[in-house]
């Protein structure tokens, strides 16, 4: 195997937790993401999180929080992360990240793990001592919603009735949270969402999520079949997920130094 295909850590999913790991580990880790974007568990899912008063431990997470604050993420007691995408993506610059790259297989071997990925250049083989999965595993999902931004028609600022909504950055605008089955696929979820929208005559659809907002049964890190599980969506907000990634990355570095 070529030297450039070897990493200390391979991270699955370009989540906020993965960004934290990449921040701590730098070129020692490779992040593989099946989709074309990062941070979809929060940004793409229109899942803005809560508990932003919870303390952050790493300097990197505190810096990210400051940038979020400067962009008005927490103005007027309303959480809105949408304008925070650029500072988040800047954390990915100069990192080893392959977007549009799905994992085709993982096998344990003497050196750790052999990972097979598939992307625009076809299959690639990677070798790593450790694999960290920051995605939500299907069997761990306890709650899953498909979200959309909706707004009141003709200045209507009242929340819609009979559905689950959350306020976000603008008066009269809401995040509609549409519960779906844990195994629902996006097409099925869109059909459920549309049925809900049919009931909301006083509101119009602005945009729909690119990913599901999931709650999982346990936060990481823990091991499953030798793979470290650090699901990003297990954290109350993306800053905590990022922080957890940084901390785990630093722990890996300490372990490697030993």
């Amino acid at each position: 195997m070529k030297r450039e295909n070897r990493y200390d850590v391979i991270v699955l999913g370009a989540t906020f937790a993965a960004a934290g790991l990449a921040q701590a580990l730098g070129s020692r880790c490779l992040v593989l993401e099946a989709g074309p974007t990062a941070g979809t568990e929060f940004l793409g899912a229109l899942h803005f999180g809560d508990d932003y008063a919870a303390p952050l431990q790493s300097g990197a997470a505190k810096e990210l929080r400051e940038e979020f604050e400067q962009r008005g993420a927490f103005s007027d007691g309303r959480i809105c992360l949408l304008d925070c995408a650029a500072p988040f993506y800047r954390r990915w610059q100069e990192k080893e990240l392959l977007l549009n790259t799905a994992v085709a297989g993982i096998e344990k071997n003497e050196e750790g793990f052999a990972v097979l990925s598939h992307g625009a250049a076809g299959f690639r083989r990677w070798q790593a001592a450790c694999v960290v999965d920051t995605r939500a595993a299907q069997q761990d999902i306890v709650c899953k919603t498909f979200n959309a931004l909706i707004a009141g028609r003709e200045g209507n600022a009242a929340p819609p009735q009979g559905v689950s909504v959350q306020r976000w950055g603008y008066e009269g605008d809401w995040v509609l949270q549409c519960p779906v089955a844990a195994d629902a696929d996006p097409a099925a979820a869109r059909a459920v969402l549309e049925a809900q929208l049919e009931q909301l005559a006083q509101h119009r659809l602005q945009m729909i999520a690119e990913d599901f907002a999931c709650t999982v049964s346990a936060a990481g890190p823990y091991l499953r079949e030798g793979i470290v599980q650090l699901p990003s969506c297990a954290y109350r907000n993306p800053l905590l997920a990022f922080d957890a990634g940084v901390l785990y990355g630093e722990e890996v570095l300490r372990h490697a130094a030993l």
Binding site: P36, T37, A38, A85, A86, Y89, R90, W92, Q93, L97, L98, L99, N100, T101, G119, A120, A121, R124
Partner: peptide, 19 residues
Amino acid sequence: DPLDDRALSRALVFSCAWE
């Protein structure tokens, strides 16, 4: 080149990071 996975990933990240 959309079939160059590394270059495409860098481009995707840049186009979201730059304002």
